[in-house]
């Protein structure tokens, strides 16, 4: 007879009882569940007991396995197992602002030092105060940079981003929670990669790109970035240098509209980018995506449309990861992952 340890409580398991059934019998009816056959994946939980959960990870993605997720309905542990809910992020910690730089007219790069174990491309929740929190994805790499890097897009009337722009200073402390998210590098090293982002979706894409290079990815890496207007692109030179140093990287900037004259420097040279529709561009350039590993980051409308398009072009659903930025409607709760 064995047991589950959950939130400092012990739940004894009956003979051949699954972790999910143990929870339900003990009155935890808030554990989501559906088919109870290892198919619908609604009962996913998390555990550090690697040996006990391996057999309950069939059908999960590499990212989920890395995060120690398992299907509680398929798990029949032989010895006591510690289990956590996947919706609970790790505890709050404190970061210190070490750099704040404007990358474009409306994107601020924030660098923080904090003790957080993360995968590049995951996201953190940042707290302005006890009521206002926002999520930002990580552009940095723990093995390459000793700080966390986030790209904050400034929104007019944005309670958080306005504070970052004018109220937050170097040396200030800020509450952080996380990391969360499963949009990070897992791939066959020879697989062609499509990394595509609009706006500050570039942040997690940079994290994923750094991780792919760090892990020795040797397949082609297609970096496809979109923006409304060419002056919205940022880190252009850094990206160009990266592509020049790594021949496997191809880099394309696609923008929708030419900026209005009075809005922009007339000297500005936008020849690095092409004008067009990023969806059409992707369709035309990558008509057959069979075997591709795809990462999509940015506004939810973008990741949804691109996911469908890449899937219909032949990419396997399990090979498409997305970090969808969801706008904030309330100012009281941290967003759900």
């Amino acid at each position: 007879m064995t047991s589950i340890v959950f939130e400092n409580r012990n739940i004894t398991l009956k003979e051949n009882e699954s972790v999910l059934d143990g929870f339900l019998r003990a009155g935890h009816h808030d554990i989501p569940n559906g088919c109870r056959a290892g198919v619908c994946q609604s009962c996913i939980m998390k555990s550090d007991s690697a040996e006990e959960i391996t057999h309950a990870q069939i059908g999960l993605t590499e990212a989920q396995k890395t995060l120690k997720h398992f299907l509680s309905c398929q798990c029949h542990p032989k010895s006591p197992i510690g289990v956590q809910s996947t919706s609970l992020s790790s505890q709050q910690t404190e970061g210190v602002v070490i750099d704040k730089t404007l990358l474009s007219s409306n994107v601020t790069r924030l660098r923080l030092t904090a003790d957080i174990d993360y995968r590049p491309g995951q996201y953190l929740t940042l707290w302005k105060d006890k009521n206002i929190a926002r999520c930002y994805s990580l552009a940095s790499h723990p093995n390459k940079q000793n700080y966390l890097e986030l790209h904050i897009k400034h929104l007019t009337d944005g309670a958080f981003s306005s504070w970052v722009k004018s109220g937050l200073n170097i040396g200030d402390k800020i509450k952080i929670q996380g990391p969360l998210g499963k949009c990070f590098y897992t791939a066959g090293k020879a697989q062609p990669l499509l990394l595509s982002a609009i706006g500050t979706g570039l942040a997690p894409i940079l994290g994923i790109l750094q991780d792919a290079l760090e892990k020795g990815h040797h397949g082609a890496i297609h970096l496809l970035l979109g923006a409304r207007s060419p002056d919205n692109f940022y880190l252009v030179d850094a990206l160009k240098n990266l592509a020049a140093q790594n021949r496997q990287i191809s880099l394309t900037f696609v923008y929708q509209n030419i900026p209005a004259q009075n809005n922009t420097n007339s000297e500005a040279d936008f020849s690095f980018a092409v004008q067009g529709d990023i969806y059409q561009y992707c369709k035309k350039t990558y008509p057959d995506m069979k075997g591709y590993r795809v990462f999509l980051c940015g506004a939810e409308s973008f990741t949804t449309k691109m996911r469908k398009q890449c899937f219909l072009a032949g990419a396997s659903m399990g090979d498409i990861s997305a970090d969808a930025f969801i706008p904030f409607h309330t100012s009281t709760l941290p967003p759900s992952p």
Binding site: C40, Q41, T304, F311, M317
Partner: peptide, 8 residues
């Protein structure tokens, strides 16, 4: 909007 869930 959640194609992964639909896929499951």
């Amino acid at each position: 909007t959640d194609m992964e869930a639909q896929h499951a």
